[in-house]
C-alpha cells in the first residue's frame, strides 16, 4: 500500500468516525427529554389549558412529532449543508454564533499553540543535552508543576495576584479592544500563560526522554565526526527522530486542553469563546447551539487525530502502512 492509498484510507476512516460520533450525539439528544416541550406543557398547565395538547403542539412546532429516522436524515443533511439551526439563546443562526465565538477562541489559541510547539521541544532538547545539571532539574520541576496544577485553579490564583492585588491586568475581559493592541495582549497574557504551562510539561518530558536516546546514537556521532555544527546536529539529526513520538504527545496534549481546560480557562477569564458558548448553551438548554458547538469540538478532535497519524508516517519513513 502506497502513501497515497494510506492517506486516502485514513481520511475515509476519519470521516466515518466523525459520522459515527455525529450520530451518537443525535441519539443522545433525541433520547433525553426536550426541556422546551416540558416548559410548554408546564406553562399550559399553569394557565389552565390542557398540558397534553400543549406538549403535542410544541413537539409539532419543533418537528419532534416526525419519526426518528426522518429527523435523523434531516439532521445529517442539515449538518453537511451547514444548516445548523437557530440559536434561541443568542437569537442568531448557530453557524454565526460559532464563528463569532471562534474569533475569541482563536485569539488565545493561536499564540498558545505556537508557543507550546516551539518552546516545548527546544527546552526538552536542551535538558537532554545538559542532563542532570541544575537547569535540567529546574526544567523537570517546571514540567511536573505545569501538568499537575489544575489549569482553572492556576488561572484563579494568577487572576487574584496580578488582577486583584497588583492590578497589572484587567479582571474583566474587554471584547471591544483591537486584536493587535497592547490592551488585548495584556488581557490575554494570563490565559495564554496558564494554557502554555499546562501543555508544555508533557512535551518537554517526552522530547527530553526521546532525544536522550539519540544524543549518542551512531548516526549523530558520524555527523559530528564529519564536522556538522552542533546546532545543525540538534536540529536535523536529533530533533527529527524525536519528533515522531513527540508529534503524538503534542497533538494529544493540545487537543485534550482545547476540548477540556480551555473551556474552564474561558470561564475563569470570562472570554466569550467557543467553550463558554458551549457551557452557556448547555445551561440555557439551547439544543441547536449545544449540537453545533459539540460538532466543532468533534471535528477538531477527528482532524487532529488524522493529522497526527499522517505526520507520523511522513516524518518516519520506517513506519509501514500495513499496520495502519
Amino acid at each position: 500500500m502506497g502513501l497515497g492509498r494510506y492517506i486516502t484510507a485514513r481520511v475515509a476512516w476519519a470521516a466515518a468516525v466523525a459520522f459515527i460520533i455525529v450520530s451518537l450525539t443525535f441519539l443522545l439528544l433525541a433520547l433525553s427529554p426536550n426541556p422546551q416541550v416540558q416548559q410548554a406543557a408546564t406553562q399550559a398547565a399553569l394557565q389552565g389549558d390542557n398540558p397534553q395538547e400543549a406538549r403535542e403542539q410544541a413537539r409539532q412546532l419543533r418537528g419532534l412529532d416526525k419519526p426518528i429516522h426522518v429527523r435523523y436524515i434531516d439532521y445529517v443533511v442539515g449538518i453537511f449543508t451547514l444548516n445548523w439551526g437557530w440559536s434561541t439563546m443568542r437569537s442568531q443562526p448557530v453557524t454565526e454564533a460559532i464563528l463569532s465565538s471562534l474569533y475569541y477562541t482563536a485569539q488565545y489559541s493561536i499564540p498558545w499553540t505556537i508557543l507550546t510547539v516551539t518552546i516545548g521541544p527546544i527546552v526538552g532538547l536542551y535538558s537532554s543535552a545538559n542532563k542532570y545539571s541544575w537547569r535540567d532539574h529546574a526544567a523537570t520541576g517546571f514540567a511536573f508543576f505545569g501538568f499537575s496544577i489544575p489549569n482553572f485553579f492556576f488561572g484563579i490564583i494568577l487572576l487574584l495576584v496580578f488582577g486583584i492585588w497588583l492590578e497589572w491586568v484587567p479582571v474583566i475581559y474587554n471584547t471591544n479592544v483591537a486584536v493587535f493592541s497592547l490592551e488585548n495582549a495584556r488581557q490575554l497574557i494570563l490565559p495564554v500563560f496558564v494554557l502554555v504551562t499546562g501543555s508544555i510539561g508533557g512535551i518537554m518530558r517526552v522530547s527530553r526522554n526521546e532525544s536522550s536516546e539519540y544524543m549518542n546514537a551512531d548516526f549523530v556521532k558520524t555527523a559530528r565526526a564529519k564536522g556538522v555544527s552542533p546546532l545543525r546536529a540538534y536540529a536535523l539529526h536529533i530533533l527529527r527522530p524525536t519528533m515522531v513520538p513527540l508529534s503524538t504527545t503534542m497533538v494529544g496534549q493540545l487537543l485534550l486542553l482545547f476540548a477540556g481546560s480551555s473551556l474552564l480557562v474561558e470561564v475563569v477569564f470570562s472570554i466569550p469563546g467557543l467553550g463558554r458558548v458551549l457551557f452557556e448553551s448547555v445551561i440555557a438548554q439551547d439544543t441547536s447551539l449545544v449540537l453545533g458547538t459539540t460538532l466543532v469540538f468533534v471535528f477538531v478532535g477527528v482532524i487532529g487525530n488524522l493529522l497526527q497519524d499522517i505526520t507520523y508516517t511522513v516524518l518516519d519513513p520506517r513506519i509501514g502502512y500495513e499496520d495502519r
Binding site: 476512516w13 468516525v17 466523525a18 459515527i20 460520533i21 450525539t25 443522545l28 439528544l29 476540548a259 477540556g260 473551556l263 458551549l278 457551557f279 448547555v282 449545544v290 458547538t293 459539540t294 469540538f297 468533534v298 477538531v300 478532535g301 477527528v302 487525530n305
Partner: peptide, 15 residues
Amino acid sequence: DIQASFPTLVFYLLI
C-alpha cells in the same frame, strides 16, 4: 479510536 476522538469533557457536560 472512536472513543479517543470524542471530546470527553463536552460529553460529560451534556450527560
